[in-house]
Nucleic acid binder design. Structure first.
Lengths: 193, 193
DNA sequence: GGCCGTCGGCTAATCCTATTAGCCTATGAG
DNA sequence: CTCATAGGCTAATAGGATTAGCCGACGGCC
């Protein structure tokens, strides 16, 4: 059974499988090598080192998240787009909790492009609110904080009580929407963009 | 120079210093031993293992955060309490970014009590909104998500643009407040608690 | 057809960290 | 004075990361 020839992408595939199945801490070069049916040092022919592998994984996950976010926002606008974005984000994280937890948050040049694309989508979701310049940036930050915070906590199993998470998340979305609909003085939308 | 005698607490102190100065990943038993001027295995006389040390660190940080949160909420209520809580939380995380990043999110029995106390404070900050039962829980979750998300991202340096972070955070607080002031049907406050 | 460079795997070796086992000493209780 | 204990130590084991250097298969080229 000729296993598929190794390549950086294939290594990342294996890494993702490990992360999904055993958690982010189980992502180890020797674990990847084990799955690849190869000796650990051989991986260095495809990936610079473990740190880079983690970055590549982050890039991949960021890409998937971007896709999800993009699909959510497509064809919608205003509150509807915002809620769809938030729901999509959360459901991606809930579907792949370990993968989501494996995301490296600290910005790195290698993932900057993927990150920017994702920010672009979030920005697009906010378009209908007509936010200008800085106001849009503040809004994007808040949206990121809300979505990321909820996703991390849910992925970590930090919400222990029985209350329905969908409802909690709906409230979060309500907060975001209602906050944007009643912007404070400094961040009021300017003339239609 | 009689170094202070080692003890579990002293070990955690050293661990925190390492985390603060070198980041969460630098928290290693041998690093702690180095600072303590002791051989690595000696630490096992005070701490079960690295995993436990991490849990102890989490407990300590949770305690500090609880103190900060508690002080913020004391003597305030309503929107003011909420904003003070959010500001305090954020400023703690900003003051000790590595420490904040070292927090283990996954709930563990050893930190459950500390976590519950913190949740209690958040709940107290929401008291004035008169939320009943589930509604209060959903609100706490949202608040946690917002505060934690912002704190994590800020600590990781994920907000790169020049825009003032205070302003972004104020918008986040505005979202939370305005969302609570206009609760959707399901989560409307009941008769005054 | 034969030669050569490169790709991608391998083994050996090094370093670090965690963790366990077992030893040893000072110290306070009795 | 004796002894148990606390708390430090050394030796040793087990992983995991990484580097160095070896080697065979394969495609391209003369």
């Amino acid at each position: 059974m000729a296993r598929a020839p190794l390549s950086p992408d294939a290594v990342v595939d294996l890494a993702l499988r490990i992360v999904d199945e055993e958690g982010p801490d189980a992502l180890t070069l020797s674990a990847v090598a084990g799955r690849a049916g190869v000796a650990t040092p051989s991986l260095y022919k495809h990936v610079r080192n473990l740190a880079e592998l983690r970055v590549l994984v982050t890039g991949r996950v960021l890409g998937e998240l971007t896709e999800v976010a993009s699909e959510a926002v497509l064809g919608r606008s205003g509150d509807e787009a915002l809620r769809a974005l938030m729901d999509g984000w959360r459901s991606y994280a809930a579907r792949h909790p370990n993968r989501y937890s494996a995301l490296i948050q600290a910005p790195r040049p290698e993932t900057a492009e993927a990150g920017d694309r994702l920010i672009g989508i979030i920005l697009a979701a906010l378009r209908a609110y007509g936010l200008e310049g800085s106001a849009a940036i503040h809004a994007v930050r808040c949206l990121r904080a809300a979505m990321h915070g909820f996703a991390v906590l849910e992925a970590a199993g930090a919400f222990q009580l029985a209350e329905d998470l969908d409802e909690s998340h709906a409230l979060l979305a309500h907060m975001v929407v209602s906050g944007l609909q009643t912007l404070p003085r400094t961040a009021r939308p300017g003339p239609a963009a």
